[in-house]
C-alpha cells in the first residue's frame, strides 16, 4: 500500500480494489452488535480541518473510532490561514504529538502534498479534500457504492458507464472520480457547459459532452456535482434557471436513464438547481447510502495506511 493518500491517482488497480474489498469487510461490522475493532488501538489520528465540513469530519471521526484509534479534532477554521505559515506550524505541532495519521481538509489545492512531502511530519497523510484538486475518499466511496449496486459488491467497474455532471472545473470530487473510475475500468463521460470544464480536459481519460441528454440513455450511474449559484456572477453561466434547465437532473431526464441506473450526489445538494427534489428522493437515488458507505471506506483507508502494511500488527485480523 502507498504511504499517503493524496490523490486518487496514487492508487493502482490492485490497491483500489484492495481498499474496496477492505471497506466491504468493514461494512459487515456495522451489522454486528460490536461496532469496534482493535486494529488502531494506541494510534493517534488527527482530523485537521482548515475548511468547515462537518459531514466529512464526522465520517472520518467515526471511522477512526470504530478502529479504536485516539482521535484529535483540530479545527483551524477561523484562525489566520491565509498566511501559509499556519500549515507548517500546525504540522510541526502534530509531529510533536506523534500523530500516526493526519486527515487534512484544506482550501488550497496541494496542501496535503505539502504536508506529506515538505518533511514536516512522519505520519500518513490522508487528503480529505483540497481546494479544487481532489477528494480521493469521496471517489472511493462512490466507487464502492457503484460496485455494490451494479457489480454485486465485487471486483472492479470494468465496462460500466458513469456520467459526471456539473461544475467539473472547480470540483475536487470530479477529479478524484475521473482518476479512480478510469483505474477501475469504467467509461466516464463528463457533462458541463464549456465554461465549467478545465482547459486541458481533452487530455483526461473521459468523453466530454456539452449536452446532458445525449449520454443519459447509455449511463449506468449519474453523478451530479454541486453547482454554486454564485458562479453565474463570474459569467460561468447566465442564470441559475438556465443552468438548471440545461444541466439539472429532473424527472424527464430521470426517465431517459436505463432501468438499472443509479443517481449519485456527493452532497450537499442544491435541490432545484442541479437536482430536482423528486429525483433526489427517488428510490434509485443512492445519495443517503453514499454517506453510510463513506465510513466504511474511510475505515479501510485508515486501516491500510496506519494499521496495515505500514506497521503490521499480526494479531489484529479483520474477520
Amino acid at each position: 500500500m502507498i504511504p499517503h493518500l493524496l490523490s486518487a491517482a496514487d492508487l493502482d488497480h490492485e490497491d483500489a480494489v484492495l481498499v474496496l474489498d477492505t471497506a466491504a469487510e468493514m461494512a459487515t461490522l456495522s451489522d454486528r452488535s460490536v461496532k469496534k475493532l482493535p486494529a488502531l488501538r494506541g494510534k493517534t489520528v488527527v482530523n485537521l480541518f482548515f475548511e468547515d465540513s462537518t459531514r466529512t469530519r464526522i465520517s472520518f471521526e467515526a471511522a477512526a473510532k470504530r478502529l479504536s484509534a485516539d482521535v484529535i479534532n483540530f479545527s483551524a477554521k477561523g484562525s489566520s490561514v491565509s498566511k501559509g505559515e499556519t500549515l507548517k506550524d500546525t504540522a510541526l505541532t502534530l509531529q510533536a504529538m506523534g500523530a500516526d495519521a493526519v486527515v487534512i481538509r484544506h482550501g488550497s489545492s496541494g496542501a496535503p502534498h505539502r504536508l506529506a512531502e515538505a518533511g514536516w511530519i512522519d505520519g500518513a497523510v490522508v487528503n480529505a479534500g483540497d481546494g479544487t484538486h481532489e477528494h480521493p475518499t469521496q471517489a472511493l466511496l462512490d466507487a464502492f457504492t457503484i460496485r455494490r449496486h451494479l457489480r454485486g459488491g465485487e471486483g472492479d467497474l470494468s465496462g460500466l458507464r458513469v456520467t459526471i455532471v456539473g461544475d467539473v472545473l472547480h470540483s475536487r470530487v470530479a477529479r478524484s472520480n475521473v482518476h479512480l473510475l478510469d483505474t477501475l475500468g469504467a467509461k466516464v463521460t463528463v457533462v458541463a457547459p464549456p465554461t465549467l470544464l478545465p482547459v486541458g480536459v481533452e487530455e483526461w481519460p473521459v468523453t466530454v459532452s456539452y449536452s446532458l441528454d445525449d449520454p443519459l440513455p447509455e449511463s449506468d450511474a449519474v453523478m451530479m456535482l454541486r453547482v454554486q449559484r454564485e458562479r453565474m456572477n463570474a459569467a460561468f453561466f447566465p442564470s441559475a434557471r438556465e443552468y438548471s434547465r440545461r444541466y439539472g437532473l429532473d424527472q424527464v431526464r430521470m426517465d431517459m436513464l436505463p432501468e438499472h441506473a443509479i443517481v449519485m450526489h456527493p452532497g450537499p445538494m442544491n435541490r432545484g438547481m442541479e437536482i430536482a427534489d423528486g429525483v433526489a428522493d427517488h428510490d434509485r437515488s443512492v445519495i443517503v447510502e453514499q454517506v453510510a458507505n463513506g465510513v466504511s471506506v474511510r475505515m479501510a483507508v485508515l486501516y491500510l495506511l496506519v494499521g496495515g502494511s505500514r506497521q503490521p500488527e499480526p494479531t489484529e485480523v479483520i474477520v
Binding site: S109, G110, T132, H133, R172, P198, V199, G200, E203
Partner: peptide
C-alpha cells in the same frame, strides 16, 4: 500556466 497540468492539479490557470 493554464493547460493540461493545471487541469489535473486544480490550480487556477494563467492563460
Amino acid at each position: 500556466n493554464e493547460g493540461a497540468v493545471s487541469a489535473i492539479l486544480g490550480l487556477r490557470g494563467w492563460p
